[in-house]
Every structure is written in C-alpha cells, then in structure tokens.
Amino acid sequence: MRIVLAAVALLGLAAAAAGQEVAPFVVSGDGIAAPLGGLAGSAERGGRIVRNRETANCLICHTIPDPAEAFMGEVGPPLAGVGARLTPGQIRLRLIDPTLANPDAVMPAYHRVAGLAHVDARWRGRPVLSAQDIEDVVAYLSALKE
C-alpha cells in the first residue's frame, strides 16, 4: 500500500512537471536575479549546450573564444567578454526571453512557450532549453570574462 501511494505520488509529480515546462521567474530591471528553480548551473555543461548544434545552436549566430570552433555565425554579438559586460541576471533574462529587454530582438526565447505562433506540433508547449540548461548556460557565459 505504501509502495502504491509512493508510485501515485511520483506520477503526480511527473504530471506536474509535464504541465509546467517553464519555470516561474521575476524580472527586475533588465535582469532575472534568482536562478530558475533555485538550480545551480555548471559552466562545463553550459559550454557543451552552447556548442550543441541540435539544441541551443548558439554558434549559428554567435562566436565564442574557442579556436577549435570553425564556422561560427555573426548575426549576434560575439560572446567573448559577455560575463564582464552583463550580470548573471541580465544574461539569464536574455536567454529566457530576449524580447523582455528588446521587443525586436532577433534571438529566440530559449525558455518560453506562450505567445508563439505556428509552433510545430513536435515542439509545442516545450521550451528550447530546460531550467537546468538555462542555468548551465548562464554559468558558462558568466565565466567568459574576456
């Protein structure tokens, strides 16, 4: 009985997670100071996410200071030194939804599902990056001091 109750509780948690793909956050100024879900980011994981062509694909538009990367894009600003130019909170806001800072931003919102038009059924209701992914990328970019 106890095992059944535990299983039901687990299912309930899973359902809640599925229904809430986007973590809540509070905007102050042009930043989001608190880490999403109180999660700690890993700069090492963040570096892998930034380079991943299948998910974030940041390097289609941005360059990073890494001589091993060829064919990086030039639509967005270079990310070298971004950790010195922006606070972690400002970086977090720009990853979650850059249109919060600039309504005309070209950059996609990586942690948003509302207010998007004609989203392919495979991606509908799902953000590009999870709350953990966002925190990992915040950690990686905040460490790019020069």
Partner: peptide, 28 residues
C-alpha cells in the same frame, strides 16, 4: 513579417534585416 515557430523568427528578421551576415558557414 510574422514571427513563427519555437524559435520565434520571421522571414524578414533574417532575409531583410541580416542579409549578407553569416549563419555558421552560410551567408544569409
């Protein structure tokens, strides 16, 4: 001019506002 899809991009944002810039190795 309508932003579309999970990546929230319109045709115009690339093919008008960023013509000639590089997306990886491709020129827009």
């Amino acid at each position: 001019e309508t932003r579309m899809g999970q990546l929230n991009l319109s045709c115009a944002q690339c093919h008008e506002a960023n013509v000639g810039r590089r997306l990886r190795g491709d020129v827009i």
